[in-house]
C-alpha cells in the first residue's frame, strides 16, 4: 500500500493531502500544508504544542493518525486571522515569552470559552493543565483567558443575536 489521499477542511478550506497511513496529522500539516503553528515537543500528547481543533475540540495532532482526520474540520491558529479576541487578549496581557506553546494555548482557551463563557480561575487552570509552557507564563496566560472572556462578552453584547453564538 502506498501513500493515501486524505480529505478534510482546514481553516475553512477543503484540502486533499498525501500521507502514509501511519503518519501523524502533525507531520502532514507541517510538510504538506506548510503550517508552522503546530509544533512537536513531546510526541506523547502531553504538552499541547501541536494542538489543533478537530470539529471544534482540541486534540493533539502529534498522536492523531493522519487518516483519522478524514472528513473532519481542522482549525489551527493560522485560521483565526490574528485578531481573534483570544489572540488580542494574549497580546494585551503579553502572555508569552518564546511563543512556542502560544498557538496551542490560544486554541485551548478558544474551545474552553465557547463552552464556558465565564470560567473561574480554577477552571481555566484545569483546562490548561495539558498545555505546558516551559517559559512559565501560566499566570499571564490565565489572565489572558480572563481578558479574552471579557472581550468575547463585549462582542456578544455589541452583536446581540439569537443564541448569541460565540465568535470564532
Amino acid at each position: 500500500m502506498a501513500a493515501m489521499e486524505i480529505h478534510f477542511t482546514l481553516n475553512g478550506q477543503p484540502v486533499a493531502v498525501q500521507a502514509e497511513p501511519d503518519e501523524m496529522l502533525l507531520e502532514v500539516l507541517r510538510r504538506e500544508l506548510g503550517l508552522r503553528s503546530v509544533r512537536e515537543t513531546c510526541g506523547l500528547g502531553i504538552c499541547g504544542a501541536c494542538t489543533a481543533l478537530l470539529n471544534g475540540q482540541p486534540i493533539s495532532t502529534c498522536i492523531l493518525l493522519a487518516p483519522l482526520a478524514e472528513g473532519c474540520e481542522i482549525t489551527t491558529v493560522e485560521g483565526l486571522g490574528g485578531h481573534h479576541p483570544v489572540q488580542r487578549a494574549f497580546e494585551e496581557v503579553q502572555a508569552f515569552q518564546c511563543g512556542y506553546c502560544t498557538p496551542g494555548m490560544i486554541l485551548t482557551i478558544k474551545a474552553l470559552l465557547e463552552e464556558q463563557p465565564a470560567p473561574d480561575e480554577e477552571t481555566i487552570r484545569r483546562a490548561l493543565g495539558g498545555n505546558l509552557c516551559r517559559c512559565g507564563c501560566y499566570l499571564k496566560i490565565v489572565q489572558a483567558a480572563q481578558r479574552a472572556a471579557a472581550l468575547l462578552a463585549e462582542e456578544r453584547r455589541r452583536q446581540p443575536g439569537p443564541g448569541a453564538a460565540p465568535v470564532s
Binding site: D22, G43, L44, G45, C62, I63, L64, L65, L68
Partner: peptide
C-alpha cells in the same frame, strides 16, 4: 486496531510499533 488512536500514535512515535495494517473503527 485503532480506536481513538492515542496509544497507537505514541507507540509509533516511539518506534515501538511498526504495524503491517491499521484497522480503524472510527
Amino acid at each position: 486496531v485503532v480506536a481513538g488512536g492515542t496509544f497507537v500514535g505514541i507507540l509509533i512515535n516511539q518506534g515501538l510499533l511498526q504495524p503491517a495494517a491499521l484497522l480503524t473503527l472510527r
